[in-house]
Amino acid sequence: MNYDFSSGIELIKLCDEAGIKISEAMIRREEQISESTREQIIAEMQRDLRVMRESVKKGLTEKFQSVSRLSGGEAMTLYRYADFGPLSGSETCHAAAAAMAVVEVNAAMGRIVAAPTAGASGILPAVLLECGHSKGWNDDKLVEGLFCAGAIGLLFAKNATISGAEGGCQAETGVASAMAAAALVELSGGEPLHCLDAAAIAIKNIEGLVCDPVAGLVECPCIKRNGMGAANAMLSADMALCGITSLIPFDEVVSSMYIVGREIRPEYRETAKGGLAATPTGKLIAAGIKRMNGRRED
């Protein structure tokens, strides 16, 4: 049986015929397209999970600043606050903090796993690890979640884009939220179709979001958008799990997101020429960063 797929519909059919979950389809596909064994493929994903866990831990326990000195420490603040009755619920707040932690680590030149990009690297590890903690999912389950998320990311990469320069922030934190939402649904016992509903709901929420990083750095607004992306993933998953569906089917949502992405003007696609980057404060910060060039650093 050929396990490759190019659309959500094909993926659902494949899972249906073989009686398997999305994660299993993705593992079998990887076996077919690579020269690696199943064991090697799973071991490689376990290494990713390990680095993800380290990056969350580092961001929530160590004090540091980014290279630009624009960020650092806010994730830890939110994580602590989450224990004191936050309005959005302590689990959501913990997950948002964990997502911010990873991107703060990233901005400080720490080690992260791009998922699907470095700028959106917080969302997937945060929701898997935080929800995994409260639901009691072990590492084998979390690795399955990563394969399921990978399948959703693949569909965006094939049929749309996962690059902010091509499709704006929706292609980065949006796709990451969609990947995470689908993984949460599968790990919670949802059917493959529910996974796609969750992914569609998540991306619809931020369709059209532009990429306008201040001074071109992966910090403002990226860090907080990862926090929001975690919450988006969790709520989208909950909607799908209680039986709410996406009126517009997943594949059509992917294609509309791509069309919208291509219509976003270049100023709002990672070039740091529009939006937040073009505000008076944004420009002032960019000028300061440019002055760093002359200085030697040790």
Partner: peptide, 11 residues
């Protein structure tokens, strides 16, 4: 899609 493992901040 999931990866690479890298030193931040930008791929």
């Amino acid at each position: 899609i999931i990866g690479p493992r890298m030193t931040g901040p930008s791929s």
